[in-house]
Amino acid sequence: MQDNQQQAYDRGITIFSPDGRLYQVEYAREAVERGSASVGVRTAEGVVLAANRQTRSPLIERESIEKIHAVDDHVGVASAGHVADARKLIDVARQQAQVEQLRYDKPVGVETLTKEITDHVQQYTQTGGARPFGVALLVGGIEDGQPRLFETDPSGTPYEWQAVAVGGGSDEIRSYLEAEYRPETDLGGGVTLALDALGQVEDGLDAESVEVATVDAESEQFCPLPPEEVATHLEETDIGGDET
């Protein structure tokens, strides 16, 4: 009897366990942990997003593994977890960004957009027959000239961060960021910190496998970094391009 009930909490997304937990949401968080990490760093000059692409085979075209996406001119999203789930959420975000533009003729605020995403995610924790999104997103952009960085998780909760990691090894990366983060750093310093942070859990980072994008506070433009620039930054990091 006890076992059956336990199973029921386990299966039903909309059913709380007696101790108040939603197991499916917690399992979705596990799915995020199984993905490779993404890092976000907020600096005075803009926001940095960095992610590591896991390639299963040298034959795969690396560009087809997308972990960082443009959502609007001034907002980008990095993901960790199920890529397919991430794509659905990113499309929700892209549509909402344009709906805001259509409705008010204003670029969508990063906080507003994040909450549009998390409200969508939350519906999937309270609707029968649904499964939650197995993905966490970092939403980085510029709002009223200020850099903003948010995290969304599978429960549909938004969090704002100065620097954060999601995905595999994120605990270790967050500890590193807590020790090394300096709010006054410039955008280039932010890129280096993000790469250093990723390097805490990934061996042998190279410019081809890392995806980096920035949203500059001055231009308010989302901008993926070309591999040559990533390589330059990698040389500045402690992990370095050269293995010792």
């Binding site: 609007d72 892209r94 549509q95 960004a97 344009q98 709906v99 533009q101 003729d105």
Partner: peptide, 16 residues
């Protein structure tokens, strides 16, 4: 104009 701009922008973000 607003509709066209929003739809063109959405497509651009999706396709790169």
């Amino acid at each position: 104009v607003r509709s066209l701009r929003a739809e063109a922008s959405l497509t651009e973000k999706r396709r790169g």
